[in-house]
Design a protein around this nucleic acid. Structure first.
Length: 393
DNA sequence: TCTGGGGTCCTAGGACCC
DNA sequence: TCTGGGGTCCTAGGACCC
C-alpha cells in the first residue's frame, strides 16, 4: 500500500497570519500574545522562544521581538479559506484544529497525480492564494504523516515511502511521538527506552504491563507502523468550556462570583448558539502553587440555560471555598460536558393497551421537557401507536 | 519556564444494580 | 447472610494537543 495520507499544517499559524497582514513584520521575530506566547514566528523561535512560554521569559530571550495581541477573528477567517483549499484538494478532509488537517488522497492518482504532486500543488496554492507557509507530510498512516509534516517544518514537504518507515521512525527520540508528552517520555526513559526503535524492541505485553492497557497497545502499534486504533471515539465535540486566569492577587468571594457568572454566560451562550446542551458541570480551579483541582456535578437533564447551570456552579464554588481560602485561586474555569447527542432520531411502533399508552405519554412528556416540545411527537392513539423522538439539530 | 484558553481521552475508585 | 462476576454512572485527577 502506497502512502496516500497527507497531514497539512500551517507553520506558526497565528504568527504567520500576522506577518502576512503586516508586511513590516516579515523576516522579524514576532510573538503573538503578551502574557503568554501563543505563537512565535520562526525568526523568534531561533532565540529559543516557544509557545506556552511566559511573556517575560520570551522578551528576555529576544528583547527586539515584536509582540502583537492575538486577533482571533483574523485566524478564524484564514482557517475558513484554508479549509476551502483543503476540500478542493481532497474529498475526505479531517480537520484537527484551525490550521491543520488530514487529507485522504487515495484514488486521486489518475485525476490529480501522485500524492507528492498533490501535496506540492496544495502548498503552492496556500502560499499564493492565502500567503501562508504550509508544511505537508505524506505517509501510509496518520501518525506517520503527522510526524513527517513535523519533520518537514518549516515550509517543507516530506514523503515517507512504505519501505522507508523504519528508517524514518525508529531513530526518532520518543519525545517526538505525537501523543507522548513530558510525563510519558520520563517513564519511557526510566525504563531505558530512548528511541522509537527501543519501543519496537519491547513486546506488547511488557509495554502494557508498564504503561497500562491503552497506552501500552498504542505505543506498540505505533512503533510497528500500524495506525494505533484511534484514541478518539465518536465524532463532534464533547464539551464546551471557558476559563479565565485571575493573576496572583487574592480575589474576594464577590469577585470570584462575578467571574463565574461571566464564564457561565459565555459558555451557555455558545452552547445555545450551537443548539447543544449538557448535563455535567465541571468547575476548574488552579491555585497559587499551580496545582489544580476540579469539582463537578451532574444534572438530571441536559440544559444550556444560564440560570440552571449557574446555580450548581455556585454551589461547587461554595464547596471549594475552604480550599480556595487556604491555597488562593489563580484560575477559574467552567466546562459543560456529558452533552446531548445531536442528530439522533428514534422511532418506535408498537401495539399498546390503555395503561401502556399512558406510560408512553408520560415518558414522552419527560422527553419533551428534555428536548423541547417541538422535537417529540406521538402518533395517533389507537391499537397501533407510535412515538417519535427527533432530537436532530 | 513560574504558565492562556480551548479542547480530548484515560484511569481509578465508589455507588448501585442484576 | 455472605460472596461473586459483570455492568453503568459519577467524581476526581492526570496527560496531552493546538
Amino acid at each position: 500500500m502506497e502512502p496516500s495520507t497527507l497531514h497539512a499544517d500551517v507553520d506558526a499559524f497565528f504568527a504567520s497570519v500576522e506577518q502576512r497582514d503586516a508586511p513590516e513584520l516579515l523576516g522579524k521575530p514576532v510573538i503573538v500574545g503578551a502574557g503568554v506566547v501563543m505563537a512565535a514566528s520562526y525568526e523568534a523561535r531561533a532565540f529559543g522562544i516557544r509557545g506556552g512560554m511566559g511573556g517575560a521569559e520570551a522578551r528576555s530571550r529576544c528583547p527586539d521581538a515584536i509582540v502583537v495581541p492575538p486577533r482571533f477573528s483574523a485566524y478564524v477567517e484564514a482557517s475558513r479559506a484554508l479549509f476551502e483549499v483543503f476540500r478542493d484538494t481532497a474529498p475526505r478532509v479531517d480537520g484537527r484544529s484551525l490550521e491543520e488537517a488530514f487529507l485522504d488522497v487515495s484514488g486521486l492518482e489518475r485525476i490529480a497525480g501522485h500524492p507528492s504532486e498533490i501535496a506540492r500543488g496544495l502548498r503552492e496554492r496556500v502560499r499564493s492564494e492565502l500567503g501562508l507557509p504550509l508544511s505537508v507530510g505524506i505517509a501510509r498512516t496518520r501518525v506517520l504523516a503527522k510526524m513527517a509534516s513535523r519533520a518537514a517544518k518549516p515550509d517543507g514537504l516530506l514523503l515517507v515511502p512504505a519501505d522507508g518507515e523504519r528508517a524514518f521512525l525508529h531513530p526518532l527520540p520518543v519525545e517526538r511521538i505525537w501523543g507522548v508528552g513530558p510525563a510519558t517520555a520520563a517513564r519511557l526513559h526510566d525504563r531505558g527506552i530512548v528511541t522509537v526503535g527501543d519501543i519496537a524492541a519491547r513486546s506488547e505485553p511488557s509495554l502494557i504491563a508498564a504503561f497500562g492497557d491503552s497506552t501500552g497497545r498504542w505505543l506498540h502499534a505505533l512503533a510497528h507502523f500500524r495506525d494505533p486504533a484511534t484514541r478518539r471515539r465518536g465524532r463532534g465535540r464533547r464539551s464546551f468550556g471557558s476559563q479565565s486566569a485571575l493573576g496572583r492577587r487574592r480575589r474576594s468571594r464577590r469577585e470570584l462570583d462575578q467571574t463565574l457568572c461571566r464564564l457561565v454566560e459565555r459558555v451557555t451562550g455558545r452552547m445555545r448558539k450551537a443548539g447543544r446542551s449538557g448535563r455535567t458541570i465541571v468547575l476548574r480551579l488552579r491555585f497559587d502553587d499551580y496545582s489544580r483541582a476540579t469539582r463537578s456535578a451532574t444534572l438530571p437533564r441536559p440544559t444550556a440555560a444560564t440560570e440552571t447551570i449557574l446555580r450548581p456552579a455556585r454551589e461547587l464554588l461554595d464547596a471549594a471555598g475552604p480550599t480556595i481560602a487556604r491555597r488562593g485561586v489563580t484560575l477559574l474555569g467552567i466546562t459543560i460536558t456529558n452533552l446531548d447527542i445531536p442528530g439522533v432520531g428514534v422511532q418506535l411502533s408498537l401495539p399498546l393497551d390503555g395503561d401502556e399508552g399512558a406510560a408512553l405519554d408520560s415518558a414522552l412528556d419527560r422527553l419533551r421537557d428534555q428536548f423541547g416540545s417541538g422535537t417529540v411527537t406521538r402518533g395517533p392513539p389507537g391499537r397501533e401507536s407510535a412515538g417519535l423522538v427527533d432530537v436532530s439539530r
